[in-house]
Amino acid sequence: MLVNSQNPIRCEWLSEDPIYIEYHDKEWGKPEFDSIKLFEMLCLEGQQAGLSWITILKKRENYRKLFKGFNPYIISKFTEKDVRRLLSDASIVRHKGKIEAIINNSRCFIKMETQNECFSDFIWGFVNHKPIVNNIYNSKDVKTETTSSIALSKALKMKGFKFVGSTICYAFMQACGLIDDHINNCICKSKLT
């Protein structure tokens, strides 16, 4: 299919915001296998709960700075004093439960590693280590959860993770390319199939 380079077709949920377009074109739906990057995205998707993704996306660099590049080994050492510091920083979403969830989740990530469980292998196991490409005609066809996101959510909760409901897990799976939910005529769909 030929695409007009001046007006390429993209997923309908996208706004005209350049940061959103860049995220859509270069990241969303691209398979990610790096455990730390997957951990970062899971944490950021949890920060989105009740908000729009663009809100978190615009604050992502602030999160990366304040949460030390999402290095679980550094985050796991955060104390109540760090929580108070983060709650006073307007460059991120100031929600105590969400901030504490990132710290908690870093400890869960480390526990998995100490038990010789690779976070990436664990996550990708919910799609049999291969992206699921969905047939999406328009944004109305996109689901908010599936049996695989429900299973991932339950498994993460069993490991002690927080802010990992099935809808958050589905958004995470879409973002990290475990599930390709680009609409069929999107310029990014053709790159993934």
Rank of each mutant, 00 (worst) to 15 (best):
R84W: 04
K96F: 01
L178Y: 02
S5Y: 02
Q6G: 01
I19N: 11
Q174L: 13
N128F: 01
I150N: 00
K58I: 11
I36F: 12
I36H: 06
L14W: 04
W28S: 10
H182I: 04
F109M: 06
I136Y: 05
R84Q: 15
S139I: 15
F126T: 01
N184F: 01
L87F: 09
Y23N: 10
L156D: 02
P18Q: 12
K65D: 08
L152F: 02
Y137D: 13
K81N: 11
F78N: 13
Q47A: 08
V142A: 07
N135D: 15
R107F: 05
K162Y: 05
I103C: 03
E22K: 15
T144C: 09
F67G: 09
K111I: 03
T79G: 04
N71R: 06
P8N: 03
G165K: 00
P8H: 05
F109W: 05
Y170V: 00
K140H: 13
M41Y: 14
E27N: 07
D180Y: 04
K130G: 02
I19R: 13
C169T: 01
P8D: 08
I187T: 05
E145Q: 05
S52L: 04
E27H: 13
D17M: 02
K68E: 15
F126W: 07
C176W: 00
A171I: 03
S52A: 14
N7P: 00
E22W: 09
M41I: 12
S52D: 09
G160P: 06
K59N: 09
L87H: 12
P31C: 07
T167F: 00
V164I: 08
L66I: 05
L87Q: 07
I21Q: 13
N104G: 06
K59E: 14
S106K: 07
E27V: 10
E40Y: 03
N105F: 06
H182T: 09
T193A: 07
L156T: 03
N105G: 05
C43T: 01
I110H: 01
Y137Q: 15
W13L: 04
I183T: 10
A90N: 12
R84F: 10
K30L: 06
F119D: 06
E22Q: 15
N104F: 09
S120V: 14
Y73L: 09
K191A: 07
T144M: 09
V164W: 02
I56R: 05
N62C: 10
L87A: 14
Q6I: 10
I99A: 10
N7D: 14
F78Q: 07
F70M: 11
E27C: 08
I92R: 08
S166C: 06
C186L: 02
D181E: 12
C188R: 13
N138G: 00
L152T: 06
L14E: 14
L57N: 12
N134Y: 13
I187M: 08
G160K: 03
N138C: 13
V127N: 03
S148I: 00
T193I: 14
E40W: 08
E27S: 04
S153K: 00
G165L: 03
Y73F: 15
L2M: 04
G165W: 02
L156F: 01
K143N: 07
F109G: 04
M41E: 11
I92F: 09
K140G: 10
K26H: 02
G97R: 09
I132L: 15
C186W: 03
K68Y: 11
I21V: 15
